Computed example of a mutant assay.
Amino acid sequence: MLTVRPATSDDCEAVADIYRYYVENSTATFDLEAPSVAQWRTRLETTVAAGRPFLVAGAPGEVVGYAYLGVYRGKAGWSWTAEDSIYLRPEAAGRGTGKHLLRALIDAADPAVTRTIMAVVSEDVPESIALHTKVGFVEVGRTPGVGRKFDRWIGCVYLQYTIGA
């Protein structure tokens, strides 16, 4: 049975493993090096300290996906806007896990802390664009050729969700 719950420090090894796959094998992220487990623990701590959710999904004892609301643009004027990040183990894709996890992330967002959620999605990942659209995100822009990975230029699609709208 799939459950979604707040992540703990013990989940960071699975989170790091999931993300490493995408760093090494896809253009879903423009990271070229995967963060360490220690870096994921720091990200978890700073996310929770900022009053934002960091969730994991899976059956008891396993993690098949994670999602969190991170910093958007890093300037004080953007502090009520968050950028979502959601990744699943490849074998968990196409089973509704992403939709369940993203809805739970939105539900866990505190409107006193987060007004707007932005998704910055590689144009190479139409499944992620479709997922965000299914849960209510609206496309607000495209930036062609802004990222480079695997010796090619890749654009991004920007999608926006307003809490309480």
Rank of each mutant, 00 (worst) to 15 (best):
K149V: 14
R41Q: 15
L131R: 04
E45G: 07
G141N: 05
A50P: 14
R89V: 13
A76G: 12
A28R: 11
R89K: 14
A57E: 00
L102P: 08
K134N: 08
R148L: 09
E24W: 11
T116Y: 00
A49P: 11
D31H: 14
R148A: 06
P35C: 05
L88W: 06
D110K: 05
A112E: 13
R41N: 12
A92M: 03
A119S: 14
G61Q: 00
V120W: 11
T133K: 07
A112W: 11
I154F: 14
A82N: 07
A109N: 01
F30Q: 12
G51T: 10
F137L: 01
D31G: 04
T133W: 04
D151M: 03
I129F: 07
L69E: 07
G136A: 06
S122W: 07
L44C: 01
E62K: 01
G58F: 03
G136D: 10
Y72D: 10
V48L: 14
A49R: 14
A108F: 07
R43Q: 12
P90W: 07
I117E: 07
L131T: 02
T81V: 14
A109S: 10
A67H: 10
A112P: 04
A57T: 02
D31I: 13
D84F: 04
I86M: 02
I106D: 07
I117Q: 03
A59Q: 12
V120H: 09
W78K: 01
A93F: 01
V121M: 12
V125I: 15
A109V: 02
S26L: 12
R41T: 09
T97H: 10
V71Q: 08
A108D: 11
A119K: 10
L131S: 02
I86L: 15
S79T: 14
F54S: 04
E91W: 09
E83H: 05
G51I: 06
E62Y: 00
R152D: 06
V135A: 01
W78I: 01
I106T: 02
E62D: 00
A82F: 10
T114C: 15
G65L: 06
S122K: 05
V140R: 05
V56L: 03
Y87C: 05
L69V: 00
G61S: 00
A57I: 05
Y87I: 09
R103Y: 00
M118I: 15
G65C: 06
T143L: 15
A112R: 15
Y68G: 01
G77A: 11
T133Y: 02
A38G: 14
A49S: 15
K149M: 09
V140T: 15
E45W: 04
I154Y: 13
F54Y: 15
T47C: 06
G77H: 07
S122Q: 07
A59L: 04
S79C: 12
M118V: 15
P60R: 10
G98P: 13
L101D: 00
L131E: 01
R148Q: 11
L131N: 02
A130H: 12
R73A: 07
Y72R: 06
I154P: 13
D110C: 02
A50V: 12
R103Q: 08
T97Y: 10
K99Y: 01
S85Y: 13
W80L: 09
V63L: 00
E83R: 05
A28P: 08
R152L: 05
A104M: 07
E24I: 07
A59F: 06
T46C: 02
H132P: 10
T46N: 10
G145H: 14
D107W: 06
W80F: 15
P90F: 05
V125H: 15
T29N: 10
G155C: 08
G74F: 11
